[in-house]
């Protein structure tokens, strides 16, 4: 069997607990990503999702374990891994366009000025912001800033895109619109994406697989849930697919009832789960009264 595109092996993070002892935030994290996959990771706050993502980005170091991408160990940050941070991280003294130009120039130092600009404008257009090209981040709304930040990450065409709760700070309406845009860009580019979210619906809409993380300390990636819904997906119609509800119920149940105790396989790899197996055919959806789990899901979303 050929090596996977990205392999994470036995990652753990230990902090001193302030009383002379140690606190293991997460341990023995193992998973692999294939090229072109969109994978989301969900888990309760503080279990270490951002830390894992920062280790993949090369911005943080794990206490043990290693990350191998394309057969090379990840040792520091690099252009082949693009990052979108929750707080946008645009350079406030540069215009929207120049924030992208900055990244494109760093990625392809040999390109001519015109080529850099043309390429940057194309990606700004993809997120519908050509009219706001010359505005500074302070003159943009939160949603527009996050779009610039997404355009910047996609523009450098990294082999792996890392998104840390990119829509966490946005209102529900804006979040929906940008999710649609992300779906669109992803369908076009088929980048490999690893994304943190706390929104179950967002995870189902976007991912091929969803990693479920147990609670810390000593958190693990316990399960890998397959999302059996064909691409292209759309936010407006995905609700009609019965696989959607099965998957959603499964995720919510995990987060509400099982995240404290769930464990991965004996060998440390996440348990593979296919909650919607065998119901690929859409059935007429029965109108159900709102269940307890849906109320809980909203609490998780909030």
């Amino acid at each position: 069997m050929s090596k996977p595109f990205l392999e994470v092996d036995g990652l753990s993070k230990v902090y001193p607990d302030g009383q002379g002892g140690e606190l293991t935030v997460f341990e023995d994290i193992r998973f692999a990503l294939e090229k072109g996959e969109f994978v989301c990771i969900i888990g309760h706050s503080g279990c270490g999702k951002s830390t894992i993502l920062n280790v993949l980005a090369g911005l943080d170091e794990a206490s043990a374990g290693n990350v191998v991408m394309n057969g090379k160990e990840v040792k520091g940050p690099g252009l082949e891994r693009g990052v979108v941070f929750q707080n946008y991280s645009l350079l406030p003294w540069k215009t929207a366009l120049n924030n992208i130009v900055f990244a494109v120039k760093a990625r392809w130092p040999g390109w001519s000025k015109e080529k850099v600009r043309e390429h940057s404008e194309r990606y700004l257009k993809m997120v519908g912001l050509e009219h706001a090209m010359n505005r500074k981040p302070s003159q943009l709304s939160g949603g527009m800033r996050q779009r610039v930040s997404i355009a910047r990450a996609f523009a450098t065409q990294p082999e792996l895109l890392l998104l840390d709760e990119p829509f966490g700070a946005l209102d529900a309406l804006t979040r929906g619109v940008i999710q649609d845009e992300l779906v669109k860009i992803w369908e076009e580019t088929r980048q490999t994406v690893f994304m943190i979210t706390h929104d179950v619906d967002e995870a189902i809409l976007l991912s091929d697989r969803i990693f479920l993380m147990s609670n810390g300390p000593n958190a693990r990636i316990a399960e890998s849930v397959k999302v059996d819904i064909p691409h292209p997906r759309a936010r407006a119609t995905i609700f009609q697919n019965p696989a959607y509800h099965k998957t959603r119920d499964y995720l919510v149940d995990f987060l509400v009832n099982r995240s404290g105790s769930a464990l991965p396989e004996q060998d440390g790899s996440p348990k593979v789960v296919e909650p919607a197996k065998g119901i690929a055919q859409p059935e007429p959806a029965a109108a159900e009264p709102e269940t307890k789990s849906e109320t809980a899901a909203r609490a998780v979303n909030a």
């Binding site: 911005l59 252009l79 693009g82 990052v83 941070f85 900055f102 990244a103 760093a106 990625r107």
Partner: peptide
């Protein structure tokens, strides 16, 4: 965050100092 932007874009120390 801004320093991290420079790091993820592989800017060297001089470039980071001057552009960020």
């Amino acid at each position: 965050d801004w320093v991290n932007v420079a790091r993820t874009h592989e800017l060297g120390p001089i470039k980071t100092a001057l552009t960020v």
